[in-house]
């Protein structure tokens, strides 16, 4: 019922979503921690820039990525010179687009969970002899893990659905950058592509639903059983 070609699209989508989530995760956590815990000048501006992909038309985000990662662009030229690689028209480029679009959602979820960690527990850890790093590693990080996981799953789901920035940045190359939404878009353009649209859409909905349920369960876990006595 589902053709090998369609399975390949699903596999590519999962790979793009997973890689973009894993690469974005540490960056999102660092930004979330910065926003939750550090007071610095220009914080509002940094916060706004992180959230830009959420509100700017995705086409614009894709175009900016294209400018940055083109062979003549600042990041693209650097990648070419140092590593001899280009991300244009490659699945790695699709992962970058997904990561940028997912970043604000991941930062939001993680920031909330870091802010929810009771600072008094960190104070208690410090009086027990833990330095800042040990306190972070043994108290702050484990207590914000449910939020980190929820943010990661949400980011993965967002990456799976990425369309506008991806098609602008790395185009719609079957087998390379054609993820689920791009394949659905292509099938819609073809006469007789209806059945494929139905199948791929159903897969998209199921994957997204599973991710959202997982994210919600993790977020609930974050609020349960971790109250301070």
């Amino acid at each position: 019922m589902i053709s090998p070609e369609e399975w390949q699209i699903v596999a590519l989508s999962l790979r793009v979503g997973m890689v973009s989530m894993l690469v974005t995760l540490p960056l999102a956590f660092a930004l979330a921690w910065l926003l939750a815990r550090v007071v610095f000048p220009g914080k509002i501006l940094v916060d706004a820039v992180i959230h830009l992909p959420l509100v700017v038309p995705p086409v614009v985000t894709g175009w900016v990525l294209l400018l940055l990662f083109a062979p003549s662009g600042p990041v693209g030229a650097w990648l070419e010179a140092w590593f001899g690689v280009s991300v244009l028209f490659r699945w790695t480029g699709a992962a970058i687009a997904s990561g940028v679009m997912a970043l604000p959602l991941m930062v939001r979820a993680m920031r909330l969970s870091i802010e929810a960690v009771d600072r008094r527990l960190e104070g208690a850890a410090r009086t027990l002899g833990a330095g800042r790093w040990r306190c972070f590693r043994t108290i702050t990080l484990p207590l914000s893990v449910p939020g980190i996981l929820a943010g990661a799953v949400l980011g993965f789901a967002r990456g799976l659905g990425e369309f506008g920035a991806t098609i602008t940045f790395v185009s719609n190359v079957p087998g390379e950058t054609q993820t689920l939404p791009l394949a659905i878009y292509s099938a819609l353009q073809q006469p007789g592509g209806d059945a494929m649209v139905w199948r791929l859409s159903a897969i998209s909905v199921l994957l997204s639903l599973a991710a959202l349920v997982a994210s919600e369960l993790l977020a609930r876990r974050a609020g349960r059983g971790l109250h301070v006595i």
Binding site: L121, A124, I139, P142, L143, I229
Partner: peptide
Amino acid sequence: LPPERRGAGYVFQDARLFPH
């Protein structure tokens, strides 16, 4: 001195046990 170098055994009003 930072808290970890003061050697205080601090028992808080609200126990403050690590919940995890």
